[in-house]
Design a binder for these strands. Structure first.
Length: 572
RNA sequence: CGGGGUGUAGCGCAGCCUGGUAGCGCAACUGCUUUGGGAGCAGUGGGUCGGGAGUUCGAAUCUCUCCACCCCGACCA
């Protein structure tokens, strides 16, 4: 491809409404253009990348024996009423009506359609297991689309669905899919983690999210440095501390703390180690509880894990923090002065709090704290539970290694659905036993367009994008220096371009009559992995210049045999 | 949905407070020069100032209203 005939429209300035680097770079390179909130066009440049990702997904799915198909994007409401999701799916479901007044949706996902096909076409266990997939534009009417294609309303998704005679078969396909997904993200050149996820209310057994690791990720994940354990921070179990509670060494004292209403203020004003403080959070109690409110205790430097808290039977679901008025009315002190001693509501302590001694906490009187508190001696130890978020350095729940924290971008999700949809829609087959069996299902998603943005988040520098080679829009950039004036340069560049193209390499040949700096900057901005510069200077010595996008060093390569030399440098 | 903010040329912005018919940088176009890290000079084109209504002799500017977009939160995954 020559730049003179390719639609290359780059911008030096960063658009004002792009927050994260992938969005900024996708706009500056011209890969995408916004049509309206959360809806984007892909330019020829962006589309090349999107297709690369799509093809890797397709090839690996096909290789595993899964069957590609294409389902309608527009679906009749009846199907959604059948599973109850016409009402339950919520505002993300884009509903529309045809001229006859019939209701439709623009598909945000395709469980209903595929289950309808399955119940019509699958009759016998002999047809199972079977896995269908498609790569298609989805629409979810996000409340707040943002970050460009990272969280768009219209996006490209690979969605797959498997059907089985029993749970064992589902489990087998699920773990195969786990491997297929790992291969896909590896092939795309991305650093990722498979993360255990919340299987949620649907009741399916297993669920994993695949996260591309990037500092700007919306999800926090915890993973072990000594095993392949990884979990969403919400789900990462914290093991009880191994040590015994130390014996008391201090007396309990009631101290005036007029200006300390947060742990931070307390620690600063009294020069306390933060690990010696206890935070008291008050939430609504479960209806079965004798009290309206319940207190949750975590160490001053820890944070409450709301997912863990809400799972406790004593705590109301959904979790709701008590208002300041409720706290004052019930306890008689403000939220900045609460603690377990002489507390008139039930309380649950995090396991880390249970092994503390000589600690500091609120006195349940405004502007006063108790110092030197000890369990049993000053106040009975309450119920103990795992309440806090894991932190860096906690032992891994599987007993191997320590936890590290990282941020991730969710690009894939695999899920054992069970029979939720097949039951609702009566998708059954005859088994070997001659009886009807409701088919357990799995569903498997990959955010294809989101991968493009995630790849940029993970692979960029201050000059622009540094594409992993398998998803780069072009692999080699050929840049002639001052070609207008030099026949030799022009001829050498044309020849290299022709040779590489002939060899099946995707080359972008910059034949614009622009200054070298413009070429360098554009090619670096759009992130082409390999660059070859051809100039008079080098040709005099029979040399070309080669540079890897991620390197800052030029390398001279002989003009003679340059094609072979360059081909050897391409990866994959 | 609640709170905050912004809409002026393709992009980034000034002008608005204090009303007098629109400007800067980049980009684009033409010519000449230039050509190893976003060139220089000269010239050119491009804006119903988000829409509507009102106040006024006169509105980008003041008032009302609608719309769009962005940010924070809630919601959703």
């Amino acid at each position: 491809m020559k730049t003179s005939t390719f639609h290359l429209v780059t911008s030096r300035e960063t658009p004002a409404d792009a927050e994260i680097v992938s969005h900024q770079l996708m706009l500056r390179t011209g890969m995408i253009r916004k049509l309206t909130a959360g809806i984007y066009s892909w330019s020829p440049l962006g589309w090349r990348v999107l297709k690369k990702v799509e093809n890797i997904v397709r090839e690996e799915m096909d290789r595993a024996g899964y069957l590609e198909m294409l389902m309608p994007a527009v679906q009749p409401a009846e199907l959604w009423r059948e599973t109850g999701r016409w009402e339950d799916f919520g505002g993300q479901l884009l509903k529309m009506r045809d001229r006859a007044g019939r209701d439709f949706v623009f598909g945000p996902t395709h469980e209903e359609v595929i289950t309808d096909i399955a119940r019509n076409e699958l009759r016998s266990y002999k047809q199972l297991p079977v896995t269908f997939y498609q790569i298609q534009t989805k629409f979810r009417d996000e409340i707040r689309p943002r970050f460009g294609v990272m969280r768009a309303r219209e996006f490209l998704m690979k969605d797959g669905y498997s059907f089985h005679i029993d749970e064992d078969s589902l489990d087998k396909t699920y773990w195969e899919m786990y491997e297929v997904y790992s291969r896909i993200f590896s092939r795309a050149g991305l650093k990722f983690r498979a993360v255990r996820a919340d299987s949620g209310a649907i009741g399916g057994s297993a669920s994993h999210e695949f996260h591309v690791l990037a500092d700007s990720g919306e999800d926090q994940i915890a993973f072990s440095d000594g095993s392949d354990f990884a979990a969403n921070i919400e789900l990462a179990e914290v093991l009880p501390p191994p040590q015994e509670r130390p014996a008391p060494t201090a007396d309990i004292e009631l101290i005036d703390t007029p200006d300390a209403h947060t742990i931070e203020e307390l620690v600063n004003q009294f020069d306390l180690p933060i690990e010696k403080t206890v935070k008291t959070l008050v939430v609504e109690a479960a209806e079965t509880s004798a009290s309206d409110l319940i207190a949750l205790l975590v160490r001053g430097d820890h944070t409450l894990n709301e997912f863990k808290a809400v799972k406790l039977e004593q705590v109301a679901s959904p979790l709701r923090f008590a208002t300041e008025e409720e706290i004052r009315e019930t306890i008689g002190a403000g939220p900045g002065s609460l603690g377990p001693v002489k507390l008139n509501i039930p309380c649950i302590a995090d396991a880390s709090v249970a092994v503390m001694s000589d600690f500091v906490s609120g006195a349940n009187q405004d502007n006063k704290h108790y110092f030197g508190i000890n369990w049993d001696r000053d106040v009975p130890l309450p119920a103990v539970a795992d309440l806090r978020n894991a932190i860096e350095g906690d032992p891994s729940p599987d007993g191997k290694g320590k936890l590290r924290l990282a941020r991730g971008i969710e690009v894939g999700h695999i899920f054992q659905l069970g029979t939720k949809y097949s039951t609702a829609m009566n998708a059954v087959v005859l088994g070997e036993d001659g009886k009807s069996h409701v088919m357990p299902m799995g569903c498997y998603g990959i955010g294809v367009s989101r991968i493009v943005a995630a790849a940029i988040e993970q692979n960029h520098d201050d000059r622009g994008i540094c594409w992993p080679e398998p998803i780069a829009p072009f692999r080699v950039a050929v840049l002639p220096m001052n070609a207008k004036k030099s026949h030799r340069v022009r001829e050498a560049a044309e020849k290299l371009y022709a040779d590489l193209t002939e060899a099946g390499v995707e080359v972008l040949y910059d034949d614009r009559n622009v200054r070298p700096g413009v070429m360098f900057n554009d090619m670096e901005l759009i992130g082409i992995p390999h660059r070859v510069v051809i100039g008079e200077r080098g040709l005099d010595k029979g040399l070309l210049e080669y540079r890897l996008r991620t390197s800052s060093e030029n390398e001279n390569i002989p003009l003679e045999g340059a094609l072979k030399n360059i081909l050897a440098r391409l990866s994959g």
